[in-house]
Amino acid sequence: MIELNNVAYSYGGDALLNDITFSLAPGSFHFLTGPSGSGKTTFLKLCYGALLPTEGDIRIFDHSAKDMGRDAVAYARRRIGVVHQDCKFLDHLPLDENIALPLTVSGQATPDQVANLNELMSWVGLTGKGDALPPELSGGERQRAALARALIMSPDVILADEPTGNVDWEMSQRLLRLLIELNKMGKTVMIATHDLALIRAAKAQVSARVLRISNNALQSAGVDL
């Protein structure tokens, strides 16, 4: 689905990521860990075409990211649900419209999807918050809303950057279960997180691979957890 070949990235100075080769297989479940500032968010941004590699090549759904125009990137995004670390919304629109935004911009807002929306909102524990404006929500509520927005299009790939950073243990378990369910339905999932307990909990339920960024490189950290 997404392939990185000898990818390097730098924000201008020294390379932040170096010589990364990785392939995100369909239906796989990955965790991405690493110290703060190691480049997890950067790695995810490369995966959804928000950043172009300074060296090497990234293929997103079999298209080279370098050759994708902005429209092609936009269409690819409709198949990739992204949860940003700093969940940004359209602050002037109520929450339900924000969550339905991917449907709106792709011209797919139908009554069916509205039922879908309500179900999704109850899954992430936001029932009754549909009319609230994003700035009125707590950090955890925003995070769950961002996850709901990433899932509304039923994307093939879900890239979540610290999706459980601001929620309590129980809610994080609930969100994890949602992502595992989706993975069992065939979705490809990658979660960047510091939360080792979350990773352990997941490994009990699904065969997840754990990747670790350290010293600018991507390593497999499978067994030592």
Partner: peptide, 16 residues
């Protein structure tokens, strides 16, 4: 700019 960033994140084309 933030509105545009959010719209792009959820797959809005430049035309939209």
């Amino acid at each position: 700019a933030q509105v545009i960033e959010v719209l792009r994140l959820v797959g809005a084309t430049d035309g939209y």
